[in-house]
């Protein structure tokens, strides 16, 4: 060991000696750790605040860990917090969000996958034009389409109902999902499709027996994309539902920003954390697929 260092002082040999704490490395890791603190701080503050009692919060330090852990704020946020005159907490919003989420995700993915399949394998005259309009539509501010949709929903009797919101989510999820599926199906070798047609398979047979089984990974990506997107929606919820059918995000905002009564910061943070929990769990559980989903979504749109 000693001998080796001795010779290397004269004659470079073996791996280049590396300082563990080179200036560049300190700078690099220093930056990353500082930025990480900025990113983790809000999550940490949410958790500690939601576990403190109000007297402790009034005393002082938002960053301090709770001296006395209490789950009371979580219970209150879930079942007792008030929005105006209603005092049944977030639980109703949670139930609404679940009822909105499941049909929206299923319907939007089903329609978009069939669309994507038709667009990549069964091109017909005009199909590309409709697709282009769809993609351009994704860039139009929602505000220009809000009121016409109100009229449509009123006409078909779905205004204010969960069904109406499901329809809205399906419509606005269509551009990105269709793009996702179209690109995926286009990447499957065309020979496969041709072989199936020569074997006499039709539109739905090819879709269900060949394309669908091959597209499972992209379905997972689409589900992740839609679940987080729809769960986190606020704008459509606030406009197309009524208090009885408010999704969780809208209810959360109403609870926290309600002007009546004494502010219960711990309950607010518990409610915020509960609302954020669903996408967070999906995010941490899906890992790379989530990144793939947003990367796919970012390709164009």
């Amino acid at each position: 060991m000693v001998d080796q260092t001795h010779t290397s002082a004269i004659e470079p040999s073996g791996p280049k000696p590396k300082k563990t704490f080179s200036r560049a490395n300190i700078f690099l890791y220093g930056t990353l750790i500082m930025v990480s603190v900025y990113y983790l701080l809000p999550l940490y503050v949410m958790i500690v605040t939601s576990l403190k009692g109000m007297p402790e919060i009034r005393m002082g330090n938002v960053f301090g860990p709770p001296m006395e852990i209490t789950v009371q704020p979580w219970v209150r946020a879930w079942s007792e917090a008030c929005t105006g005159i209603n005092c049944d907490g977030l639980s109703r919003g949670f139930a609404n969000s679940v009822q909105i989420l499941i049909p929206s995700v299923l319907l939007s993915i089903l329609i978009a996958s069939v669309n994507g399949y038709a667009l990549s394998n069964w091109k017909f005259k005009g199909s590309e034009i409709f697709f282009t309009i769809l993609i351009i539509g994704a860039f139009i501010p929602y505000q220009t389409m809000l009121y016409p949709i109100v009229i449509i929903l009123r006409e078909i009797g779905l205004m204010g109902s969960i069904g109406g919101l499901v329809l809205v989510h399906t419509v606005f999820g269509m551009p990105i999902l269709t793009l996702l599926f179209r690109n995926y199906f286009a990447s499957i070798p065309e020979e496969l499709f041709k072989a199936a047609r020569v074997d006499g398979a039709g539109f739905w047979q090819i879709y269900f027996q060949i394309m669908l089984p091959m597209a499972l990974p992209i379905f997972v990506v689409a589900i992740i994309l839609q679940v987080t997107g729809i769960w986190n929606d606020f704008l459509f919820g606030v406009i197309y539902t009524k208090p009885a059918t408010y999704p969780m995000t809208v209810q959360l905002n109403n609870i926290v920003n309600s002007v009546q009564g004494v502010k219960e910061y711990n309950v607010n943070m518990a409610a915020t954390l509960i609302t954020g929990l669903v996408p967070l769990v999906i995010y941490f559980a899906s890992g790379k697929l989530f990144v793939r989903g947003i990367a796919a979504g970012a390709v164009k749109g």
């Binding site: 809000p42 503050v45 959360l252 905002n253 607010n268 943070m269 915020t272 609302t275 967070l280 989530f290």
Partner: peptide, 19 residues
């Protein structure tokens, strides 16, 4: 660095309002 992107803007707004 990416987890905040999974959250709703409402959640983000309320947390930072508190901080």
């Amino acid at each position: 660095f990416l987890y905040p992107f999974a959250l709703s803007f409402v959640v983000t707004g309320l947390v930072w309002q508190w901080i």
